[in-house]
Amino acid sequence: MDNHSNKITANPKSLKYFYDFHQLMEQSEIIMVYAGEFSQALTKTLLSFTERKFNVEKLEDNVKRKIYNIMVEMLQNISKNALDNDHVITGNSPIFMIGESSDFYFLISSNKISNQNIPALKSRIDEVNSLDSEGLKQLYKEVRINGTFSKVGGAGIGVIDMARKSENALVYEFVRLNDEFSMYSLLIRVSRHV
C-alpha cells in the first residue's frame, strides 16, 4: 500500500495500483469480488464459478451447500432490487464478495435500498438474530404460509433462510446516501466445519 494514503487510485501509466489492490485482497482474505450490474445470468455465472472453486478445494459438502444457498438468496436479492432502484441514481453500485478466515467463510453483499424499507428489514434481521434454530424454523414456516410474496421479495423469508443456513448471527449496516436511499450491507458467516 501507498504510505501516504489508504486510497488506491488507478493510474493509466503504472500497474502499481493493480498490485496494491491485489495485496489488499489477499490481506483481507477475499476470494472473490464482483461489483456492477447484477442479473440472473450473472447469478448463474458466479454460482458455477464458486462451485468449481470449492470442488477443487474439497470443501465439506454441507459447507458448500450452505454457501450455495446463501449466495443464491443474496445475489437474487441484489438483482431483484436492482430492477427497481438502479435507474434512479447512479453510483453506489451493488457489490458481492466471498472471503475466508481461519474459522469461517463469509459472504458480504451491499446494495442500495429505499429508506422506507429499512425499518421492516432491520426489525426482521434483529428478530432473526434473537432466535435459536428451532425458533427460526417456526418463523420460516409461519412466513412461508402467511407471507405475501411480492415481485421483488419474499416477505423477508430470504433473511430467515440465510440465518438458518448460516447458523451464525447476521451482521448488517445501513449507510444513508440521501433522503431516499441508503446502502444496505449484510455479512453472513458459515463455519468452516459444521
Binding site: 444457498n69 438468496e73 437474487q76 412461508r144 404460509i145 407471507g147 410474496f149 419474499g154 423469508i157
Partner: peptide, 12 residues
C-alpha cells in the same frame, strides 16, 4: 437438489 426460498413457496 436445491430450491431457493421463492421456489419453496411455490412448492408449498
Amino acid at each position: 437438489d436445491y430450491f431457493n426460498t421463492a421456489s419453496s413457496k411455490l412448492i408449498l
